[in-house]
Write a protein that binds this DNA or RNA. Structure first.
Lengths: 193, 193
DNA sequence: GATAAAAATTAAAGTAGTTTAATAAATCAC
DNA sequence: GTGATTTATTAAACTACTTTAATTTTTATC
């Protein structure tokens, strides 16, 4: 199990000694996902929080007309999951699947609770992770309210230049909240400038 | 200083003994805001996190065309602030002002850090608060991506029936991401059904 | 209680983004 | 490598929502 990335991620926020590190690692399970494989489907229970060590996943819904809407992408060094389902052990709102062959490290709710109890510093760690996620989401809400599709697209590629290269336009449009057709039109227009 | 509501709020998530409670209260400052008074302006430093004990506030931006966009409303029993500005002590993204005469309890960053150090349980408390806020925001992003303005309006009044009564339509439209004119048209159409 | 200011309504014209459908290009599967 | 499937492009018609502007209603102020 390759735990380098996750330990590095944690040490950016809290300090762990050897025992704590080993205990934490003992609670993790490795999992590989092939492209298009599901980590979670709407209606299932989200049994784990998941740290991505390789690949790219998306968290999304499918509306009544069959259209997909992506609430977040996850790549290396990010956590993904359906937090509400995970916390309350109720049916998941979101689908999560792999856009590339991916590798993740998983922790169950029971193990995470054990971790909080034995190493309370992790309360702090996940508080800090959540703070960042909260701030990023608030920015996205504000952008969705304030900007045109063109501006949102330019912001997206500006902020995530590497990510865009790994995604199809269809995925990008499902994240921006526009149709693939319109994104194609925007790109044409922008390239002509 | 009326601390009943905040102590009640906290005790829903963690247990505090008398000493801890008193220490926490000693870190708080009460503040009153008149309707239309600002708690924070874009560009200022957000020096406190703020718990609302009475009234209603909004967190919003003003775009290049002068239009306001509300990222969240806050009422009794909620926390408000510009988290990024608060944490990094960098200029605020958001304006926060009172939509009603309001009363809040404030804690500074220095005092909050002191609190985390002396009573680490508060790491847990704010992690739990952030979890809920994160989940609510994710739902809102999904709704903005997935639903028409009419559906979003119906969802909003369905989920926050009491809140809607306290807001002008102008505020509701700035939250939904539509113009007041269009909201008025929607309401007319819905009332005719 | 009168006046001013802000919010809500209505209508008509305009536009950003959607829909449908047909074609081309890229990727996948064996 | 070839056929099948998915993704991207283009164009034309369409619609959800905006803009502007005039009028009415509500709220705030002294």
């Amino acid at each position: 199990m390759n735990t380098d990335l996750i330990i590095q991620n944690i040490s950016r926020h809290i300090h762990l000694d050897k025992t704590e590190t080993d205990f934490f690692i003992s609670l993790l399970q490795a999992k590989k996902l092939k492209r298009k494989e599901f980590l979670l489907k709407q209606g299932e229970l989200c049994k784990t929080e998941n740290f991505i060590i390789k690949g790219c996943l998306r968290t999304y819904t499918i509306d009544d007309n069959g259209f997909e809407h992506i609430v977040m992408f996850g790549i290396e060094d990010w956590w993904v999951g359906d937090l509400y389902s995970f916390l309350t052990q109720s049916p998941a709102t979101y689908f999560i699947d792999a856009l590339e062959d991916s590798e993740i490290l998983q922790i169950t709710k029971a193990n995470l609770d054990k971790l909080y109890e034995r190493v309370p510093k992790f309360e702090r760690f996940f508080r800090l992770i959540l703070q960042n996620a909260f701030i990023a989401q608030q920015q996205r809400i504000n952008q969705n309210l304030s900007y045109s599709a063109e501006q949102r697209y330019l912001d997206f590629i500006g902020e995530h230049p590497n990510l865009e290269q790994r995604l199809s336009q269809k995925q990008v449009s499902a994240y921006l909240g526009i149709t693939p057709v319109f994104l194609s039109m925007l790109r044409k227009k922008l390239s002509q400038k």
